[in-house]
Design a protein around this nucleic acid. Structure first.
Lengths: 202, 202
DNA sequence: ACCTGAACACCGTTCAAGT
DNA sequence: ACCTGAACACCGTTCAAGT
């Protein structure tokens, strides 16, 4: 039921009240099954993750490519549900399918020689970045790109004068360069690089 | 007015209706000054950023330390207003003070020899991470840490069996190790490392 | 014991009408 | 021209009361 609404109208419509209505009862009844809205969203995420394609086995040398692909799949899955991404960001999901995702990321990191604390803290960082990107980017396309007028930030940056903002001036065009996909790929690549390279201080 | 509410009761209370009420008028009146809630939050962020302490000038060799400090200041400023952080994540702020923050981060990166596309895309990645962390971590302390019961995710990970989840098993304790501050520092360090090292594909 | 109607305390946004 | 009362269309959560 919840999934039908989610598919057809987006997660943002899966509210306690809406769900209750669909089930011909009052909102109080939903509270018999979940504690609060966060828990409801957690359940929806895990259902969605059931459809996440985990990377096929492959040569160990390609761990990094496979990891990036996995993170991209996860991100694009959340992209379709920006408001779910926004709740997931503050959720610490605990469902079986999310656990599987953590496990797979960890295994790929370990194959790549990233172990111990760097791997443990790295999973967190990578999954958090994926979620944040979906929460961020997703909303922008959800709302109309047209009626906002040309994005205010873009305008402000384009107009920042070279004397007051020399740093911006030097990379002005690069700030808006690349497709979303290129930037996403690079971001994952850079984070993985850093996670692999930087040993946390003891 | 808005800032008084923000200081005393949190940004989440600075709603169109609440603000209107405080000004002894109806909610419609606020729409004369801002287009929507997102714009209202954008204005609040910029006001807050006015108080952000930019790093003092220093030896070029310390650019990295100074960058991390700046990002930590920004994060802890947002930490105090988790729900603002959540809107900022989907906001692309455009206020003067936010522009100043972008400029400062860019300058520090450039001092460190990170230029062009890596610097441009790097600012985005670093500021987005700061915001996401505040949005994420902040909420957890906003709600009671006690009544949720012990965090569900922590429980699920502690109980993941070693056969089904060998990756998790190998770093089980590290997944929860470190203080928030240590993990934040490491995350910024790792991202900066990656941003500096990974050249985007042409 | 299990479920829920109805209420409480809110939201954002719009628009016709008033000054 | 500028502002706003009142309405529309919603929210999450609780609790007394019903089956």
């Amino acid at each position: 039921m919840a999934f039908a609404i989610m598919r057809e109208e987006g997660v943002e419509k899966v509210t306690m009240r809406r769900l209750a209505n669909e089930l011909d009862t009052g909102p109080a009844s939903i509270y018999v099954y979940v504690q609060n809205t966060a828990e409801l969203h957690g359940a929806l995420l895990d259902e969605l993750l059931f459809g996440l394609v985990l990377p096929a086995e492959g040569a160990d040398a390609q761990w990094r490519e496979r990891l990036i692909e996995l993170l991209e799949s996860y991100t694009s899955l959340l992209f379709r549900y920006p408001s779910l991404a926004r709740s997931v960001l503050t959720l610490r999901p605990s469902g079986a399918n999310y656990l599987r995702l953590i496990e797979t990321v960890l295994q790929l990191l370990q194959v790549g020689g990233v172990t111990g604390r760097r791997a443990a803290w790295g999973v967190d960082l990578l999954l958090q970045h994926a979620t944040a990107m979906a929460a961020e980017q997703g909303t922008r396309s959800e709302e109309g790109d047209l009626d906002d007028g040309p994005q205010l930030q873009v305008m402000a940056i384009r107009e920042a004068d070279a004397e007051g903002y020399p740093g911006i001036d030097q990379v002005r065009d690069e700030l808006f360069s690349g497709t979303g996909e290129q930037r996403m790929r690079w971001a994952f690549d850079a984070i993985i690089e850093g996670v692999a390279a930087v040993e946390p201080a003891a």
